[in-house]
Simulated assay, not measured.
Amino acid sequence: MEYDPGAMLRRQEALDRGYSDDEIRRMYTRGDWHRISRGAYLSASTYAALGEEERHRFLIDSTVHAASDDAVLSHQSAAVIYGLPLWKTPSTACTSPETDAGVAGSSGGSRFTARPSESTWQWWTGIR
Rank of each mutant, 00 (worst) to 15 (best):
D32M: 08
G109I: 03
I36R: 01
S96D: 00
A101F: 12
R38V: 15
S107V: 13
P85V: 11
P5S: 05
Y41K: 01
G39H: 08
E54A: 13
R55M: 11
S107F: 13
L73W: 00
R111P: 00
S37E: 08
S96L: 05
G108Q: 05
Y47F: 15
T99C: 03
L73R: 00
R111M: 14
Y82M: 05
S96F: 02
G6R: 13
E13Y: 07
R30C: 11
R35G: 13
P97Q: 00
Y3R: 02
W124R: 13
L86M: 15
S96K: 01
R55K: 15
A40V: 08
Y3L: 07
S117C: 06
R11M: 09
Q76H: 06
S20V: 04
P5F: 03
A14G: 06
D69K: 02
A93M: 07
A40H: 06
Y82Q: 10
A79Q: 08
S45F: 11
D22N: 13
D21A: 13
W121R: 03
V103Q: 09
S96W: 00
L50W: 02
V64Q: 00
A79F: 04
W33N: 05
D69G: 11
W121I: 04
H34E: 11
R26H: 14
S110A: 11
R10M: 10
G31M: 14
D21C: 09
S96C: 04
R38L: 14
S119W: 03
R38Q: 15
T95Y: 09
I60C: 02
S117A: 12
V80H: 07
Q76V: 11
E52M: 10
R10E: 14
W121C: 03
R35A: 15
T99D: 00
E2K: 12
W121E: 03
F112G: 04
G31A: 15
L86S: 12
D32T: 13
S20F: 06
L59P: 04
G6C: 06
A71T: 07
D70Y: 02
Y41R: 01
S43M: 13
W121M: 03
